[in-house]
């Protein structure tokens, strides 16, 4: 085996896959903005993705906010900067932790379920059946998921922001003996609108990526139960990696100047 040939082949496969995902994404977006729409299905996905993810996103952000307060307190005490705890918690949560953690949790929960459901529909010919019943599978299956995920994630993250800050507050006030009013005022004092907005933009992008990967891998799954299993794993892995990469790119766009 020539190692260069192997690397070259791997690179070409990567390019081809990127191209296919790009085409899939543009088709998906095209169908999201052109009628017919399926409001029932969008609503169902909204409940599935947004509502049922509330507990897991709530738990994740609550404990992240709590541990953040504890860690930054013990760390900052070394140079007498304990007063910055509230600010550190709110900035980390809104800009970074709430969107990334919610994104990764939802990728595991929802991305996998989407790939499994659509993958099963593919291998049992249900997707072919849709086409023969004058229904475009992109409109019926993919557009509702992409729309619902792109809208639900920012809402989940906004709720996560609040819960995370609340977690920090609980630890700050009840364990670290901060004055409650002071903690709240320094939470708000340095917070800028852009901090929250950047987090919500991230969330929308992550939601889109999760639905895109879930649908892409499900839609293209082949070969029975094993194929569906592989699609599920691939959907979660690729969505998670894309979330982390997109997170860096968006942060760079908002805050590097």
């Amino acid at each position: 085996m020539n190692p260069l040939a192997a690397i070259g082949r791997g690179f070409l496969t990567l390019l081809a896959t990127t191209g296919r995902i790009g085409l899939f994404a543009s088709a998906a977006i095209g169908h999201c903005v052109r009628p017919p729409f399926y409001p029932r299905l969008i609503l169902r996905q909204f409940i599935e993705i947004g509502y049922y993810s509330l507990p897991v996103v709530g738990m994740t952000t609550l404990f992240s906010g709590m541990v953040l307060a504890l860690q930054s307190y013990t760390g900052f005490a070394r140079f007498s900067a304990e007063g910055a705890v509230a600010t550190v918690v709110v900035l980390s949560m809104t800009r970074e932790l709430a969107p990334v953690l919610a994104g990764l949790m939802v990728a595991g929960r929802v991305g996998a379920a989407m790939a499994a459901e659509i993958g099963t529909m593919r291998v049992t010919e249900q997707i072919d059946a849709l086409t023969t019943l004058s229904t475009n599978p992109f409109k019926y299956l993919i557009a509702p998921r992409v729309i619902a995920a792109t809208i639900s994630l920012p809402i989940l993250v906004l709720i996560g922001d609040i819960i995370g800050v609340f977690g920090g507050y609980v630890v700050g006030v009840y364990k670290l003996d901060f004055n409650a009013a002071n903690y709240i005022s320094s939470t708000i004092q340095y917070l800028e609108r852009m901090d929250v907005i950047s987090g919500l933009v991230k969330a929308a992008v992550f939601g889109f990526l999760i639905a895109l990967m879930g649908c892409y891998h499900g839609y293209n799954s082949r070969g029975g139960a094993q194929g569906v299993g592989a699609a599920t794993t691939n959907a979660v892995v690729t969505a998670s990696i894309m979330i982390l990469v997109a997170n860096y790119v968006i942060t760079e766009m908002f805050f590097a100047d």
Binding site: M121, T124, E125, Q126, D128, A129, L130, T132
Partner: peptide
């Protein structure tokens, strides 16, 4: 109209 091999019911 098409009757699929496995039924393909939704």
């Amino acid at each position: 109209g098409m009757l699929f091999q496995g039924g393909a019911l939704f």
